[in-house]
Structures are given as structure tokens and as C-alpha cells.
Design a binder for these strands. Structure first.
Length: 485
RNA sequence: GCGGAAGUCGUAUAGUGGUAAUACCUCAGCCUUCCAAGCUGAUGCCGACAGUUCGAUUCUGUUCUUCCGCUCCA
């Protein structure tokens, strides 16, 4: 039996054995923190995407979709701050083995110093900023040594050299390798939305407030990528950027917090498995930010971020592209009696990690049940997915592979396969086939037996309760369809 | 990246200086038929590369990968 401690390894094994998730490049010993989705994993992933897309795009008249390219103009990442802010110089203390961001370390020291001397404190920060903007790593180390800045843990000044870790993957566009051809694989999908803001707004005749939703891959060269599919170097995001009138961002931020949490709860996951975590230290672009955290097998971790990004991104792109990123608001401002006029919209971002959501759903669904009776030991592993997320919706099982039962089963198969994903199986005992479907999380199994030939009824068996009932074969399709709503 | 632990069929585990075992899974067949573990048979593993050795899966080194911590994030 898997305990909370070894639940994650149990899930990882189960995912591999039953075709959900394989390590990437498995026959070559894998590739660190990269995974492939197998035949059932890809269905699960698709179903989660569909659920999100439907809730965002289909259910909101003022939200539309987008699929922007992974390659983008390199200046976009200068404008967004990724070139400067996501390439932080780091330093390690050799005694405590702790790693620090150089700016955090020096800022912390300056803060302490400020208690005695405001001036000395400011002086350090000024020289730090200068060194940082010149990428002078040797100078930064010298600054740390000159001021005898110690590691808070070990209390020593035994430092490594300052090194840089760039979170963005770079590659070359075009056949001639040249600095000017260096482009990045996007570290977030958001910028693709921002640079298409006016395209979508104008061509879609969108009126503020409105949103643009996008699902796509993003890439981050994490220093430490760990935790199965929780933190991968290549991952998929489901993002929605919601453009609002300046001054209304607070209420929209709150509103999207509620809406997004409700989406999670609508998956049937209990509220106590979730919590909000408000950011105290805000990113350079935000005026409010929080995470939705889920209680993973390894503890509460972030699944989704909701950020009030202000007008930072559009203003930056306006600056770097020299193209106005403004919206003309015809609505009447009651205080002036005139239209609101031109402004750069504020943005509320909801950004959920698709792979993390998959791990969330798997963690919630994975169940080991002890079915032992005094006569017999018995257990099963069952994935209790919400019906709409299950890779296979219906298994169609002839009780025996003779007496024409297979033919009837295939008729039913053909009737249902257009409406939802079905799985046909005639091998092994019926009990074994039920259990195999439990392991894949199939919510419904239908068995065709001799009685079917007489009165057209079949047995439908429910995954979670293991209960069975007799229904008309002609009702099967509708019954499953009903359960998928 | 640093520290600690570990890599044996698809999964989970044995074991040995003379190239390997068990269970489940999978496959072929038999039997049975509404909840896995009945019978017969089959496929499939010592992460990789070096070194020591007559001989290495076992000892040593390197490397790769994974797990547990530290930092960043979706």
C-alpha cells in the first residue's frame, strides 16, 4: 500500500506501466526532467486542455483564443524583462553549500547596514547596480569580499565565483550563426498574447474588458528541475490575459481569483486540498499576485498563478517597438461625462501549468483499495478521474469471445465511438478486464452476455462503486453522454 | 549546480568474482465466465564506458539517470 511518503513513486511507476507518462528518450537513459505522454496520458492531457478551453473561451463571450509561435523577436524578451531579470548572477557559499542570488545577498547586507548608516547602505546598492548593469561578475565578488558579507548560515566568506544562470534557452535563427540571429525559446506564452493585443482587439472588434487565451509550450532552463512532471524544462501553460480599464484591476483580480478556484473545485476536488498563497514580494511587473496551491504528495505547491500585471507589458512593448499599444474606450466616464478615451490597458493574468494540473489530477485520482474478504485477499489500483477527464470513457466487453457476443459488442462499439473514446477488449476473464480498466481510470464498462441476445440488455459496471446494473443496450450511449456533461 | 542515497526484465523485489531468480504485467493456447492472482508454454533485465582480474552484474573510477534536501518558478 502506498503511503503519503511513497505515493509519488507509486504514481510514477503506475504512469509508466499503464502508458500515461514515460521518461523522455528512455532507451538512451532518459533526459533530465523531460517526459513524454503515452497513449493514455495524451488523452488525459487533451481532456484537461479541452475543459480549460471550454471554461475560458466558450463560456465567455469576451475571451478569444490564440496560438502564437514559440519563436519570437528577440527584442520581446528585452522588453518583457526576461533578458535582464531572468539571468540572475548567483554565488555559492562553499561551507554551507547554499546558493544565493547575488543581488539578494547584497541587498540583505545593505538592509542590516542601514540600521547604522543609511549612507553606507545606499553606497553599496549604487555600486551593486552599476556592476550588475555592466555584467561585472568579478567586481560583484570583490564587492562581497570587500564588505566581508557573510553567509547567514555558515557565517563564512568562503564564496565561489559569481556565475550567471540564464533561464531562457537560446538558439540560432537562419543558417549563419551570428549574435544578431540569436533567438530564444519562449519562457512563457504570455508575451505572444501581448504582442498580438492590437491584432486581436482590432480584428475581433473586442471591447474592454476582454481576454485572450492560449495553450502552449514554454521552456525554462531551470537550475534544478525535479518532482516528476512538476518542474520540467519543457512544459505547457494554459494562460489567459484579461485586459481591463486602469483602476478596475483590483476588482478583476479578485473576480478571476474566484473564477479560477471554482474551475478547480468543479473538477470535483475537495476545497481543503487547495489554498491561496499571496505573494508578498512582487515580481517587477505586478501590483498584486497570488498562487493557487494544491496539496501534492510532496506538499502544497503552486499549480496556478493569478497576477495583476498592471500596464507593464504593453507599456514596455510600446517603448521597444515604438508602436502605440493603446485602446480607445468609448464608454462614458461618469465623473467627467466624457469617454474614457485612449489608454494602455491593465492586465490580469491567469496562468496554469498544464503538466502540473495533470499531476494534480493523477494525485487526486490514484487510489489503492483493499477489497479483502475473510475468504480472500484482494486489492485494486483505480484512477478515480472525473468522467470528463478520463482517457477512456467506456469499455465494451463481450463476456465470452464466442456465441456471437463479439459481434454484438462491435455493433455497440461502432455506435458509441463517434461520441466518445471507447475501448474494446475480449481477452481474459471479465474480472481481470474490469480491474485493467480501473487502472486506466475508465468510468464505465459494459458487458455483453447471452441475455443480451434475448432481450437486448447489457450490464453496466461503475468504476468507483464497482456496482453493476442491467440497462438496455440502446441506452448506453446516452447514459455515458449524460455522465460526461 | 552542491550534499546524501540509489540504478538488476514493463513494474516490484532477490542474488552472486565464474553472465542471473521470484511475483505481477505482457504474449500464445487451454479451461472458466460478471470482479485480478486456475493450467501449459513464451518474450524480456544486471544504465553506459573504462580499470583491476584468467574471468566483473558483483570491486574501483568516470559518466548518465532517478530519488531526498537547498534556490527559482507554471
Amino acid at each position: 500500500m502506498a503511503t503519503e511518503q511513497n505515493k509519488l513513486p507509486a504514481i510514477i511507476s503506475h504512469c509508466k506501466e499503464y502508458g500515461f507518462i514515460f521518461p523522455s528518450s528512455d532507451i538512451y537513459d532518459g533526459l533530465s526532467a523531460v517526459y513524454d505522454y503515452g497513449q493514455w496520458g495524451v488523452e488525459l492531457k487533451k481532456n484537461i486542455k479541452d475543459t480549460w478551453w471550454k471554461s475560458m473561451v466558450y463560456m465567455h463571450e469576451n475571451i478569444v483564443g490564440l496560438d502564437s509561435a514559440i519563436f519570437m523577436h528577440p527584442t520581446i524578451w528585452k522588453a518583457s524583462g526576461h533578458v535582464d531579470n531572468f539571468s540572475d548572477p548567483m554565488i555559492d557559499n562553499l561551507d554551507s553549500k547554499k546558493r544565493y542570488r547575488v543581488d539578494h545577498l547584497i541587498e540583505g547586507f545593505a538592509e542590516q547596514l542601514a540600521a547604522n548608516s543609511e549612507e553606507a547602505s545606499k553606497a553599496i546598492l549604487v555600486s551593486m547596480d552599476q556592476l550588475l548593469s555592466n555584467d561585472d561578475f568579478a567586481g560583484l565578488k570583490q564587492l562581497i569580499i570587500d564588505h566581508k558579507i557573510k553567509c547567514p548560515i555558515s557565517g563564512t566568506c568562503n564564496w565561489t565565483d559569481v556565475r550567471q544562470f540564464n533561464l531562457m534557452f537560446s538558439t540560432q535563427l537562419g543558417s549563419v550563426a551570428d549574435d544578431s540571429d540569436t533567438i530564444y525559446l519562449r519562457p512563457e506564452t504570455a508575451q505572444g498574447i501581448f504582442v498580438n493585443f492590437l491584432n486581436v482587439q482590432k480584428s475581433g472588434r473586442m471591447k474592454i474588458p476582454f481576454g485572450i487565451a492560449q495553450i502552449g509550450k514554454a521552456f525554462r532552463n531551470e537550475i534544478v528541475a525535479r518532482g516528476f512532471i512538476f518542474r520540467m524544462r519543457e512544459f505547457e501553460q494554459m494562460e489567459m490575459q484579461f485586459f481591463v480599464r486602469p483602476g478596475t484591476q483590483k476588482e478583476w483580480y479578485e473576480s478571476w481569483k474566484t473564477t479560477r478556484m471554482q474551475w478547480h473545485l468543479d473538477l470535483g476536488i475537495p476545497a481543503e486540498k487547495y489554498r491561496f498563497h499571496d505573494h508578498v514580494k512582487l515580481a517587477h511587473y505586478a501590483d498584486a499576485a497570488c498562487d493557487i496551491e494544491y496539496d501534492f504528495p510532496m506538499g502544497f505547491k503552486e499549480v496556478e498563478g493569478i497576477h495583476s500585471r498592471t500596464d507593464f507589458d504593453l507599456t514596455q512593448h510600446q517603448l521597444y517597438s515604438k508602436k502605440k499599444q493603446v485602446y480607445f474606450d468609448n464608454d462614458i466616464d461618469e465623473t467627467t461625462g466624457k469617454p474614457y478615451g485612449n489608454y494602455v490597458p491593465y492586465v490580469i493574468e491567469t496562468s496554469i501549468g498544464l503538466d502540473r494540473t495533470i499531476l494534480l489530477v493523477l494525485s487526486e485520482a490514484y487510489t489503492e483499495e483493499d477489497l479483502s474478504t475473510p475468504e480472500k485477499q484482494d486489492s485494486r489500483v483505480v484512477l478515480k478521474f472525473p468522467n470528463k477527464l478520463a482517457p477512456i470513457k467506456l469499455a465494451i466487453l463481450p463476456l465470452m469471445k464466442k456465441d456471437g457476443l463479439s459481434e454484438i459488442a462491435k455493433e455497440l462499439m461502432n455506435e458509441c465511438r463517434e461520441s466518445f473514446f471507447c475501448f474494446y477488449e475480449e481477452k481474459d476473464s471479465i474480472g481481470k478486464r474490469y480491474r485493467r480498466m480501473d487502472a486506466l481510470g475508465t468510468p464505465f464498462c459494459v458487458t455483453i452476455d447471452h441475455q443480451t441476445k434475448e432481450d437486448g440488455t447489457v450490464t453496466i459496471r461503475y468504476r468507483d462503486s464497482m456496482e453493476q446494473e442491467r440497462i438496455n443496450m440502446s441506452d448506453v450511449r446516452n447514459k455515458v453522454m449524460e455522465a460526461l456533461k
